[in-house]
Design a binder for these strands. Structure first.
Lengths: 179, 179
DNA sequence: AATTTGATATATCGTTTTGATACATTATGA
DNA sequence: TCATAATGTATCAAAACGATATATCAAATT
């Protein structure tokens, strides 16, 4: 990640749907895409400035008087080109940092009950997040069919498929640890 | 991550199994645990120095003459305490950065063929990695049963379960994109 | 025998990202 | 009324990334 800023394409992608403020971008990242990507203000705001300088996005102040000042960002033709180029690149790095698995892998130094407890916590979290994803899916299936909609639905389906696999594994793992 | 160095527990965990050099640690991270954790020299070596200063690990030079100089690290009682404390902490952050899903989510700005192609690449990579995991599983099932062994097997089983879920999703997704 | 290649081994550097925090405004609601 | 939650922009130290520098040693190639 030390070479090309990955947050750039996240921002460009979100701006390809609608104009947003830095705060909005953070909200979008924390929303529907949070289960497969994360991002913080500390990376968003500097990236917005750099990308504006590079001409990939343009900024303007919201004219709705009465409300507080907002800096809205809009994707430019140049930015769209960058986004499309990225979409057509062959390589894609899929990195996960699963602390639960790390605790599992090194769990041998503690009693089996500790590992079982950690699996319980994991299972509970996944069950909660699965409910959220299923709600997203339900809402997406209601909506009119358009190109973006289909892509949103597919990411949610990915989440559901994998989360259900996680839950199946939890049952197996507990059984194995309890002999 | 800006507060507690996560690489620390990875190092402590690996050192709880055996004494290792910084280079060895990198190899272990790139090996069996690579599918759920990553780590670079740029984080490993500074962490080793800091942890040695903190008394969590101790270092010594390899005495096997004829070979080149190596700095081996050994976990101390203090380090074991830190590792065990971490294992018993309730929270665990499971973060993934799935560029494939990011490309899928924003795929609406390009032709469906682009997204299908990206899924094809993903599928191929997963199939390859799945073969590696199945080989690990086969070898682990042959080995004698001990506490650590069981934990290693469970992480591999997690990988297999989720990778198979990924592959099922790939088939579904392609079908949906081709209408 | 000489040379190249690749693995081993330690270390650092610039860039990116994180997680926390600072600061200020507006809306909610007890 | 007053607290507190949400909105909004911004920065900072610490951590991690990815690349690179440097050097040794074994194995393979010429």
């Amino acid at each position: 990640m030390a070479k090309d800023r990955k947050i750039d394409v996240v921002i460009l992608g979100l701006l390809s749907h609608e104009d947003l403020t830095g705060y909005d971008i953070k909200k979008r990242i924390d929303g529907a895409i949070s289960f497969f990507w994360k991002g913080s203000f500390g990376s968003i705001y500097p990236a917005l400035n750099a990308m504006e300088q590079a001409g990939q996005i343009s900024k303007y102040e919201a004219d709705d008087s009465g409300s507080r000042k907002k800096i809205l960002y809009h994707i430019t033709a140049k930015g769209t080109k960058v986004l499309k180029r990225w979409l057509n690149e062959e390589q894609a790095s899929n990195e996960l940092k699963y602390e639960t698995l790390l605790k599992l892998y090194f769990g041998g130094v503690e009693a089996p009950e500790t590992t079982v407890h950690n699996i319980d916590i994991f299972e509970e979290n996944i069950k909660e997040e699965l409910e959220v994803l299923k709600m997203y899916e339900k809402n997406l299936k209601k909506e009119k069919d358009n190109s973006d909609h289909k892509h949103f639905l597919l990411t949610v389906m990915f989440g559901i498929e994998t989360y259900e696999a996680y839950l199946r594994w939890c049952v197996k793992a507990r059984k194995m640890l309890k002999n």
